[in-house]
Computed example of a mutant assay.
Amino acid sequence: MSTPQVHRGTWLAIVLLGAVLGAVVIGAVFYLLNASPLVTLVTAGAAFTAVTGLGLKMYEFLSP
């Protein structure tokens, strides 16, 4: 029995949505800790980049 495949665009949308949510959470945490705006933006951007890269590599690893 074959399993249904998730399309590449759907997987990309899930990864990017997760990355945006992760970046917003990290940015909010740093904002609430009274970090400077520059540090807050840099950490949110780094979190977005890291989660996106990790998610896309996971897709490559898990796809047949």
Rank of each mutant, 00 (worst) to 15 (best):
T49G: 11
Y59Q: 05
F30P: 03
F30M: 05
F30S: 02
L56F: 10
I26P: 00
G55C: 09
A28V: 09
V20N: 02
M1H: 14
V39G: 06
L12M: 11
V6G: 03
T49F: 10
F48V: 01
G45K: 04
L16R: 00
V29E: 07
G22R: 01
L54K: 07
L32D: 10
Y31P: 01
I26Y: 05
T52H: 02
V20T: 10
G18R: 00
A47W: 03
L16P: 00
L56R: 01
K57S: 08
H7K: 12
T10E: 14
G53N: 08
A28N: 10
M58A: 14
T40H: 07
A19L: 02
S36P: 06
V15N: 04
G18T: 08
T40E: 07
E60C: 03
V51T: 09
L16S: 04
K57R: 12
A46R: 06
L62N: 13
T3G: 08
I14C: 08
S63Y: 08
A35S: 09
L17Y: 05
F30N: 04
L32C: 07
V29F: 12
F61P: 01
V20Y: 04
S2K: 14
S36Y: 06
G22C: 08
L17I: 11
L41Q: 04
R8A: 07
L21W: 06
S36W: 09
T3K: 13
I26V: 15
F30H: 03
K57P: 02
L21P: 00
T43L: 13
L21V: 13
A28E: 11
F61I: 10
V6L: 15
H7I: 06
G9I: 07
L32M: 11
M58H: 09
L16F: 11
I14R: 11
A50R: 00
L21R: 06
Q5P: 02
P64D: 15
T40Q: 07
L62T: 14
T52E: 02
V6T: 15
G18E: 03
G9C: 00
Q5L: 15
W11T: 06
G22L: 06
T40W: 00
L33H: 03
T52K: 00
T10S: 13
V29I: 15
W11L: 11
L33C: 04
L16A: 07
Q5Y: 13
